[in-house]
């Protein structure tokens, strides 16, 4: 069985998005309870969050963005950049803890104490752009982890797989011109889903052309189309790119019971997809994979989805 890390910290629950907001702390509580009840906690290596150094945030975001976010929290503005981004006075500190926890997890995978890991963090990250918070995201967790791998661990090629049902516009923008980070995203077709980017014809620009790849799924489609897309797009792309580490933007909102989209991926569909991604990490990266939570709003489904996600990381059977 693989040594799988599990980043979780109760302080992630303090990021308060107010009443009626879908990105709630209940998501994380439900996931944690699910892991506990399935008896998985004792099999996992727990990682606690630590506050990141600002320099790692600055590897992706402008100092001005970081400062504005800090100020908005200090002044208790309630939202940042967009009414979707509801937050509280603690949100800035929690976002720094989430990033720091992820980087700590990266260290443990890279120095061999862990084989792979799942980071159950809030707030999510993949919509955050260098200068803009968007779609409940403030700092781009996965993008920062990719830069950290390159700067601190001399990794040359990072592969990112983003299966949140929404396109990760922030991650795409950050690595748009960069041939050293391959960004693959599978999401609902942008004409039907936020944020309206991530068309199949967007493939990166300049030296980054060919290092961004999008599979778009139509409303009502599900397991079959995901399988076809991964086999047609992701598998050959990684075969060519040969990433040294895989980062996963793990959003669970493509689930059929999640009303954030019309995509109908089943729990089994998620398991097949994650197994496929883990196999790619085994093949090219010696298994090194760090998965980071993004969206997923069907609170009743998150326990089973995240249980399976962790079982697959550990190399256990999933029915």
């Amino acid at each position: 069985m693989k040594r799988t890390g599990f980043l979780y910290d109760e302080r992630f629950l303090l990021h308060d998005t107010g009443p009626g907001h879908p990105e709630t702390s209940e998501r994380l509580q439900a996931a944690y309870r699910g892991i506990e009840e399935a008896g998985l906690l004792s099999l996992l290596t727990r990682v606690e969050a630590v506050r990141t150094k600002i320099k790692w945030i600055e590897a992706v975001h402008s100092p001005r963005h970081i400062m504005r976010f800090e100020e908005a929290c200090m002044l208790d503005m309630g939202e940042f950049d967009h009414p979707d981004n509801q937050m509280c006075g603690d949100s800035y500190d929690i976002a720094l803890l989430a990033v720091g926890g992820i980087l700590e997890t990266v260290d443990r995978v890279m120095d061999g104490r862990l084989d792979n890991a799942f980071c159950a963090v809030r707030p999510p990250g993949h919509h955050a752009e260098p200068n803009k918070a968007l779609g409940f995201c403030y700092f781009n967790n996965v993008a920062i982890a990719a830069r950290y791998l390159q700067i601190e661990w001399d990794i040359e090629r990072v592969g990112i797989v983003d299966f949140d049902v929404h396109h990760g516009n922030g991650t795409q923008r950050i690595f748009d011109q960069d041939p050293t980070v391959f960004y693959y995203s599978i999401h609902e077709h942008p004409s039907f889903s936020f944020p309206g980017t991530g068309h199949a014809f967007e493939k990166g620009t300049g030296p980054g052309f060919g290092y961004t790849l999008h599979s778009t799924i139509l409303p009502g489609e599900g397991d079959k189309e995901y399988r076809e897309a991964l086999e047609r797009d992701l598998i050959p792309a990684f075969e060519e790119f040969e990433p040294q580490v895989v980062l996963v933007s793990a959003g669970f909102d493509a689930h059929v019971d999640d009303d954030m989209s019309e995509i109908r991926l089943t729990t089994e569909g998620f398991s097949w997809m994650m197994k496929t991604i883990v196999e790619l990490a085994d093949k090219y990266c010696g298994g090194r994979l760090i998965s980071v939570l993004e969206g997923g709003y069907a609170v009743q489904r998150l326990p089973e989805l995240i249980q399976n996600h962790l079982r697959i990381l550990m190399g256990m059977d999933v029915q």
């Binding site: 919509h127 944020p195 954030m260 709003y297």
Partner: peptide, 10 residues
């Protein structure tokens, strides 16, 4: 709609 969150309004 200039939002990611249309569940409720829907």
């Amino acid at each position: 709609l200039l939002t990611s969150n249309v569940t409720h309004v829907r």
